[in-house]
């Protein structure tokens, strides 16, 4: 038993060293990532990323929101939809992002929000339903490049044609140990999430 635990420990140490001091996370990150396909669509959908208790968008959320706004301002689609609930019971993430979009010149009539979806599956369900009612069939989806595979599959199940517009909160070319470990953390979370979604029959 002790030998097995030691072997597990050795694997753990090697995985840690490989993650922190070799390009292993970069390689895995690029293998799992979805390349961008930026074309004209009927709506830009920006998935939720997170909101701090003081109402500030977190890094991932802000990057995604700005990417969506950037695509909207470049005329890729007439509608810009933000998702994100009120994680802490106050203001919703989607509302904060919509405010940011208005400040940056997006017309209020072009902005939609979904504030009652708490995970990727619920986001796909609510957004597909909302956009379906408006006759939208083709969207540009803004989320992390790793998350894109899972998210895109769910939106496509809902009948939408999905173009990937990935933006990453963690660089795929990270070269500092802490950045690589952070990237590896994100990759492991996404792999676990994919396994869970497959086991639950969502994918």
């Amino acid at each position: 038993m002790a030998r097995l635990v030691r072997l597990l420990g050795l694997v753990g140490v090697l995985l840690f060293l490989g993650s922190a001091f070799t390009p292993l996370p970069n390689f895995l990150g690029q293998r799992l990532a979805t390349p961008a396909r930026l074309e004209a669509a009927e709506a830009i959908v920006v998935l939720g990323g997170g909101l701090s208790p003081d109402g500030a968008l977190d890094n991932v959320s802000l990057r995604r929101a700005l990417h969506g706004i950037f695509l909207s301002r470049r005329g890729f689609a007439p509608l810009l939809l933000f998702s994100g609930p009120a994680y802490h019971g106050g203001v919703a993430e989607a509302a904060v992002r919509a405010g940011l979009a208005r400040e940056l010149g997006i017309p209020p009539a072009a902005i939609l929000t979904v504030v009652d979806a708490w995970n990727t599956r619920e986001e796909a369900s609510r957004i597909t339903s909302l956009l379906g009612g408006r006759g939208v069939r083709k969207i540009l989806l803004v989320t992390d490049s790793h998350h894109m595979v899972r998210a895109r599959a769910l939106f496509e199940r809902g009948g939408l044609e999905v173009l990937a517009a990935p933006v990453d909160g963690v660089s795929l070319v990270a070269n500092r140990p802490d950045e690589r470990l952070n990237l590896m953390h994100k990759i492991l979370i996404e792999i676990l999430a994919r396994v869970y979604y497959r086991m639950a029959g969502y994918l």
């Binding site: 635990v5 030691r6 072997l7 597990l8 420990g9 050795l10 140490v13």
Partner: peptide, 13 residues
Amino acid sequence: VWRVLECVGLSLV
């Protein structure tokens, strides 16, 4: 070193 590996292994468990 063996003890450290054991500790890391247990932590992973």
